[in-house]
C-alpha cells in the first residue's frame, strides 16, 4: 500500500484571462500546499504544458485566442499528458457546455462563481491528496 501523495508533489497550472481570478486561485492553491503555475490564455497554457506537464489543469473556457475547449482537445490528443487531470471553469452556466467539456476529456467541471472550499476539495480528490 503506497502512502497517499502529498500536495507538495503536485503541480497545478491555472489558466484564465481574468487576472483577479488567477490571483485568487493561485493564493488558494498555494495555501493548500500545491505548486502553482499560471497562464493568461490558451497559448501560454500550451507553452507551459510543453515545458513540464502539470498534474492538474484549472482551465477557463472563455478566453481569447485558444479557448478552453481547444486546449482540452489538444491535451487529450497527446499521450504525454495522459495523466494530467483537467478541471474546466466556466462563467456560462449552460448544461450543454458542461457536457461538451466532459466529452472532450475534462475530468470535472466548475461553474463560476464557485465556493473556494469546495473547489480546493475537488482538486485534492482528483489528485488523491489527503
Amino acid at each position: 500500500m503506497t502512502a497517499p501523495a502529498t500536495a507538495e508533489d503536485k503541480r497545478i497550472l491555472v489558466v484564465d484571462d481574468e487576472p483577479n481570478i488567477v490571483m485568487s486561485l493561485e493564493f488558494l492553491l498555494r495555501k493548500a500546499g500545491f505548486q502553482v503555475e499560471t497562464a493568461r490564455n490558451g497559448r501560454e497554457a500550451l507553452d507551459a504544458l510543453d515545458r513540464e506537464p502539470p498534474d492538474l489543469l484549472l482551465l477557463d473556457v472563455m478566453m481569447p485566442e485558444f479557448d478552453g475547449y481547444a486546449v482540452c482537445e489538444r491535451i487529450r490528443q497527446d499521450q504525454r499528458w495522459d495523466r494530467t487531470r483537467i478541471v474546466m471553469l466556466t462563467a456560462r452556466g449552460r448544461e450543454s457546455e458542461r457536457a461538451r467539456g466532459l466529452a472532450l476529456g475534462a475530468d470535472d467541471y466548475v461553474t463560476k462563481p464557485f465556493s473556494t472550499r469546495v473547489l480546493v476539495e475537488q482538486v485534492r480528490t482528483l489528485l488523491g491528496v489527503a
Binding site: 452556466g93 463560476k112 464557485f114 465556493s115 473556494t116
Partner: peptide, 25 residues
C-alpha cells in the same frame, strides 16, 4: 444572455473568491 451571464459571473467570481479568502485566512 449567455454573454451577459458570463460578464456578470466573472466579477462575481473574484468577489466571492476574495471574500472567502479574507474570511478563511
Amino acid at each position: 444572455m449567455a454573454t451577459v451571464s458570463h460578464e456578470l459571473r466573472t466579477p462575481l467570481t473574484s468577489i466571492r473568491a476574495f471574500s472567502e479568502i479574507v474570511r478563511d485566512n
